[in-house]
Design a protein around this nucleic acid. Structure first.
Length: 323
DNA sequence: CGACATGTAAACAAGT
DNA sequence: GACTTGTTTACATGTC
């Protein structure tokens, strides 16, 4: 088969953008002959499976609210490019699994589909308390909603669905969520549309002016736990780490023969290219995964850093796994 | 050491 | 009346 299944186009919208050199660290970096920049990126955490895709999710991405949104349209074996465009788009929560404590995964490991409840039963490790503050959890929940607003009940539900710890935690955390919503300036209460109102209570949204701060907290938490967690154990030592609460978003990546110029030939076909989206690609070469972005890429710092953190953490995990 | 952020518990009111 | 939602207060803990 062609290697399109390993050339995963990403789309990235970043109204708040930076120009110029990307803040790449010591990771191997390539600049191809066509002027595109590439940085190492492990595919471990994405793309998500079609099952995790919903039109509402795509809508949320295409009607992006301010700040960095990171969307992923993934190529799957046997799918046409047109299919890809209609496939999974996740916003910057692209890697919700990555917002969870990073879990090491063996490269190219097929991941079984399991109901979250089953996964949580199998995963005492995943049931440890998440490192994220309630503000971050609420932020993620709201950001992951199609309308960028949620009732308290749905915030609970999102947290429970994404963080198994809270499935079994006592009810006090709900109080904390409500306490946080009320107390934090980051969140704003919106009256429901009475005509369409189903259920009680208000909707909650993120105040745009506090989004950067919330994102920064999230990034720092993510960074800290990427670098300091005990997650870099071999799977053999910790088989449970093969699954994450969002493991269904993970895909198998087989090794491929890299053909350098093939990776970007479809860039112009990106239907989003005229709407502020930047198409990214990554490819696999030797032991590295490379994210390929156009030379004139406008990419906000948070997104780049998150990508880098993922790459570095997963690279480290991968190197340990190779031992 | 103090300020601040965060987590938790509790009380209470209002709405469903 | 039971439950949920939202607000507020109080206190403990950890970080800067």
């Amino acid at each position: 088969m062609e290697n399109s299944s390993h050339t995963l186009p990403l789309s990235c919208l970043s109204p708040a953008t930076i120009r110029g050199p990307l803040p790449l660290s010591s990771s191997p970096q390539h600049t191809s002959s066509n002027g595109r920049i590439s940085l190492p990126l492990s595919p471990i955490s994405f793309p998500p499976s079609p099952a995790s895709f919903s039109p509402a999710t795509a809508e949320s991405v295409h009607s992006c609210s301010p700040l960095s949104h990171f969307t992923v349209s993934h190529c799957l074996e046997g799918q046409s490019l047109a299919d890809q465009d209609d496939l999974t788009c996740l916003n910057w929560l692209h890697q919700r699994g990555d917002l969870l404590p990073l879990q090491p995964l063996t490269k190219m490991t097929p991941l079984p589909q399991q109901e979250p409840s089953v996964a949580s039963q199998l995963l005492p490790a995943a049931s440890s308390k998440p490192p994220y503050s309630f503000s971050s959890l609420i932020f993620m929940a709201i950001e992951d909603s199609p309308q960028k607003r949620l009732p308290v009940k749905d915030i609970y539900e999102w947290i429970v669905n994404n963080f198994p710890y809270y499935r079994t935690a006592t009810g006090g955390w709900r109080n904390s969520v409500r306490h946080n919503l009320s107390l934090s300036k980051s969140f704003r209460r919106i009256q429901r549309d009475k005509s369409q109102s189903v259920g009680k209570g208000s909707l909650w949204c993120v105040c745009p002016e506090y989004r950067p701060a919330l994102l920064e907290v999230l990034r720092k938490t993510h960074s800290y736990h990427s670098n300091n967690s005990n997650l870099l154990h071999k799977p053999a030592e910790n088989p449970l780490c093969l699954l994450t609460p969002d493991h269904e978003e993970l895909v198998t990546m087989e090794s491929v023969e890299y053909q350098q110029e093939e990776v970007c030939e479809d860039m112009e076909k990106d239907p989003l290219s005229d709407s502020g989206y930047i198409e990214l690609h990554y490819y696999e070469s030797q032991q590295f995964q490379y994210l390929v972005l156009p030379d004139d890429t406008e990419l906000d710092l948070e997104t780049v850093e998150i990508l880098q953190l993922d790459a570095e953490a997963q690279e480290a995990a991968g190197s340990l796994l190779d031992l």
